[in-house]
Amino acid sequence: MADVAAPNSIAAMGDSRSSLHKLMQRKSTVAFLMALPLILLILILVAYPAGYAVYLAMLNKGMTRFVGFGNFEFLFTRDTFWLVVYQSCLFAITAVIFKAIIGFVVAHFVHNIPSKGQRKWRGMLLVPWVIPPAMSTLAWLWLFDPSYSAINYLLEPLGVGRIPWTGEAGWARFSVILVNVWIGAPFFMIMYLAALKSVPEQLYEAAAIDGATWWQRIWFVTLPMMRNIIAITALFSLIVTFANFDIVRVLTAGGPLNSTHIFGTWAFRVGIEGGDIPLGASVSLFMVPILAVAATFILRDITKRGSEV
């Protein structure tokens, strides 16, 4: 039996070797193998923690039994949670709008600087984005210090009274948004600048021949050509801003009166500091479905426009 089987098995081995050889020659296989280290890293550092967070969010406070969506149902009954939802939306949407506007305007200024001096400006304008946010926020904390604010010191000779930057709800919200805009605007600026440089000069020339004003050039040429970049940048920034932690944690720790808490900081307060890890996990996961839907729509729109082109 073995004698008979041997040639077959050799042939089979030969076949499998050649099919493995063919498989290895496929571009997709090579691409997969080259991407494998990254896929493994993502599985370990992203997929596993995310799955574990979902598992934690479905446990009771004592982490002894499965409660399904019980923690989310409980959150919906809490006033503080809705305050956090409101603040997270206010924080993220306001900050992204201002970052986009400032980034757009500054990108135009930089674009119009002669190329010789442009590199210096680009470098300088990127500094807030390059410094680790926890560190730069510490500097802002000193500028906004309740008792010794350097900004108040400068405003005093101008007759402006002491501003409670982090001591009053409205000002505290303003302060955290301001710092977020300061850190994030350079990212928008550099993305928009890259997009501006890719707009063909002929389009502007044609518009000029047609007698278009500067506003018409922006509205009918620049903005349509930058649409995809604007959408992607806004989406990425929205996700990152919703998930922010360091700025609020360092600057106000969520105070005063919980008026600056966002999902990340409140999840930490409830889960780690307060010892209710399942509820903290639920808070941190709350935005995932909403952001996923937003991301789907924005990315679908971009794909659609891509296929139209």
Binding site: P146, P164, W165, T166, G167, E168, T252
Partner: peptide, 19 residues
């Protein structure tokens, strides 16, 4: 108390005294 007391953290009172 100081007007900004609601914004104080654990370092604020130390600074207040030492200053």
């Amino acid at each position: 108390l100081p007007e900004d007391a609601p914004a104080w953290d654990d370092a604020s009172n130390n600074k207040w005294l030492v200053s």
